[in-house]
Design a protein around this nucleic acid. Sequence first.
DNA 1: CCAAAAGTGTTATGCTTACACCCATGT
DNA 2: ACATGGGTGTAAGCATAACACTTTTGG
Lengths: 246, 246
Amino acid sequence: MTELIKNSNISVDCVVFGYDTNTKSLNLLLIKRYLESETDHKVLVDDYVLTGYHIYEHEKLDDAATRVLKELTGLTNQYKKQFKAFGDPDRLRNEKDILWIDNEKFNFRTVTIAYYFLVKTEDVDLTHNKNQAEWFSIHQLPELGFDHKKIILEAYEDLKTKCLAEPIIFELLPNKFTINDVQDVYESILDIEIDNRNFRRKLINKKYIIPLDEKQIGVSKKPAQLYMFSKDVYDKMYEKNYLINI
Amino acid sequence: MTELIKNSNISVDCVVFGYDTNTKSLNLLLIKRYLESETDHKVLVDDYVLTGYHIYEHEKLDDAATRVLKELTGLTNQYKKQFKAFGDPDRLRNEKDILWIDNEKFNFRTVTIAYYFLVKTEDVDLTHNKNQAEWFSIHQLPELGFDHKKIILEAYEDLKTKCLAEPIIFELLPNKFTINDVQDVYESILDIEIDNRNFRRKLINKKYIIPLDEKQIGVSKKPAQLYMFSKDVYDKMYEKNYLINI
DNA sequence: CCAAAAGTGTTATGCTTACACCCATGT
DNA sequence: ACATGGGTGTAAGCATAACACTTTTGG
């Protein structure tokens, strides 16, 4: 199995952003890290971390990230961005991290290549996952191990910037959505309020936001018009306009 | 010397962008890679690569990049951005790379953390550098080893995007510059033409572009007004305006 | 006085922002 | 009929884009 030789000092870590259409909230998928002392059963470590793993000797970085996401969520083909490498020699040297690493036997000096993924929480089935994975609101994170708080915050900053410039927002929405759905996602990610009339006009004017011959069904109030996003149209009309905005 | 234990499978590579005010061109600093066969003196490898090196066991990634830049140029405190990690298992496995690595004895599976730096070519003294470093126009690159062409192109794309959104352009200019100098840098980086009247109005209206009581001297035609960029003013007035621009 | 680069103004258009009420639907 | 969220219009201000000539200086 030469395929499975690990590079013990290089890993990928995955920041999994999940948007929940029901609660209209941006969430983060974290896994539990728990360790008891063998002698007196004292709780040594009890917090959360990002999902991640070492890269294999013959594996591309992107493939390692995709593998790690798949193991946790079963999902493939999700939007993925490699956004930063973290390699501070002391990044795994907090007290709890040292206890954990003694137990798990990996390298204290591990450089991690951090990715973030965009998924819909509804697509993830957590009922029988063995990692005790849970969704947490981006605004109410639990205690985090390693340097994962830092990684998460940097991923979030990158996401905020990126969703202003590229149509990644639609990765977090179902294929058919209402204008207000889109507004809700922006408001959740950016943590701002947006004027509905202006937002609506702006979006409807985009040629790649295509109204469908369909309205919401099963909704208890006035059903809203559904739209789809056409990546084809977007890609065709897209020309970098080089607007200097400093 | 435990400080100097190398991580033989992790490196940093530095894309050094240099703007030459005289030729008004964006350049790249590359070092020569040359190898002859010991037996018949046939030229085995003769091309250029980015400057880079392995990281030391107790060294931060940023510090490794800074060290590498300093060794090549003598410069410190330059604008620096870690923009991507490259870790394809075959990234160092072209024919010439294999010959080179056999000679230099490092790991075929090296993940490199790529940085780019912004410098002024006039600040770099290449007259007695031992790496045979040379400046090349970003639009006329020589043959490049490893996956460094790919790394350079991705750095350049990132630079183009970033200079539209953040005032990094001034890293490439002297402290005192004319409005036309700034326009020249934008035109060089973005490879576009900009209307001088519109550009001038736009820049002069920025509060952080401060006119000095000085004009160009030693210039053979009408001397232009000099300005400076105030990072303080910029930072103070800067508020993220969350303009959705998709 | 000439060459060269610096510098200047106007108009049209489109996007952004601010703002408050009516409408359609399911229950 | 009513509660709920969906949906609509206008005006002001600002930034952008297009466009060509005059001014200043050193030589």
